Simulated assay, not measured.
Amino acid sequence: MTGLRTTAPRGEPLRQFIKYLLVGGLNTAISAVIIFAVQAAGALPVVANIVGYAMGVGLSFALNSKFTFRTAATRHTAIRFLIVVLISYLANLATMVSVLHLTHAPYLAQLCGIPVYVIVGFLGNRYWAMRERAR
């Protein structure tokens, strides 16, 4: 099984996951500020939400590519990142709907979807979207 080993240090996945969580927390806070500011400036809530989320996805890509995964922020990487965001969201939604169906507890269902989104996003980015490609 030596073919599965990487040259990365043993603790690197944990360090990257912690950085990923930090970037996510910062990104969430900044996105919320943008959403509220755009809405306070007179935009409709849906428009403010779209603007905040779009800026948040861009910020998340920039910070995760540079700080978390230390990979080049290329168009190819950005497209893969967006695919991971979509898959993460769909996994979150499926989890939320399933838990809601089983428990009829909407707040619990929302909470159960969050770690699914984070874990799917981290794994998708680490092993696919932001993986260093062979030259």
Rank of each mutant, 00 (worst) to 15 (best):
A40I: 01
L86K: 03
A32Y: 10
L4D: 09
I79V: 15
G42I: 02
G25I: 06
Y20H: 10
A105Y: 07
S98E: 13
Y107I: 15
T28C: 09
V116L: 03
L108T: 14
A91V: 15
A29Q: 01
V118Q: 03
P13A: 02
L86Y: 04
R15H: 11
T77M: 09
V47S: 13
L22I: 14
M96C: 10
L82D: 06
A43F: 06
L22C: 11
L26E: 00
W128P: 08
T71G: 04
L82I: 11
R75I: 08
T7N: 14
F81C: 04
V116N: 01
I34W: 07
L111M: 14
R133C: 09
L4C: 12
G58P: 02
I18Y: 00
R5N: 14
K66E: 07
Q39E: 12
L93H: 09
A62V: 03
Y127S: 08
N64S: 07
S60D: 00
G121L: 05
N92A: 09
A91W: 12
R135H: 11
G24D: 05
F36T: 02
V47G: 06
V97F: 13
S88E: 05
R10W: 13
T103A: 15
A72V: 13
T6N: 14
A72T: 14
P45F: 07
V33W: 12
G113Q: 01
G3N: 15
M130N: 10
F122Q: 03
L21S: 10
P13Q: 03
P106H: 10
A37C: 02
V85M: 13
V51E: 04
P9D: 07
V99H: 02
H76W: 07
G11I: 06
F36W: 07
M55E: 03
R135W: 05
T6C: 08
V57Y: 00
L90P: 05
T68M: 05
P115Q: 10
S65E: 03
S65Q: 02
T71N: 07
L82H: 12
A54Y: 01
R126K: 12
K19T: 00
R15C: 05
L26D: 00
Q16P: 01
M96N: 11
A41E: 04
G56D: 01
C112P: 04
M55S: 13
V118I: 15
V99R: 02
I30S: 05
P115I: 13
I50Y: 02
A62Y: 01
Y107H: 14
G58T: 03
N64I: 02
L108N: 12
T95R: 04
P106V: 10
T7W: 13
I87E: 08
I87R: 08
S88H: 06
T28F: 12
A129I: 06
L123Y: 10
P106E: 10
A40C: 08
A54L: 08
L86M: 13
M1W: 10
A37Q: 04
R133P: 04
W128M: 09
V23Y: 00
Y53K: 02
I114N: 09
Q39N: 11
A129D: 06
T103Y: 08
L82V: 12
L123H: 09
P45T: 09
L123R: 11
L4H: 14
F67D: 01
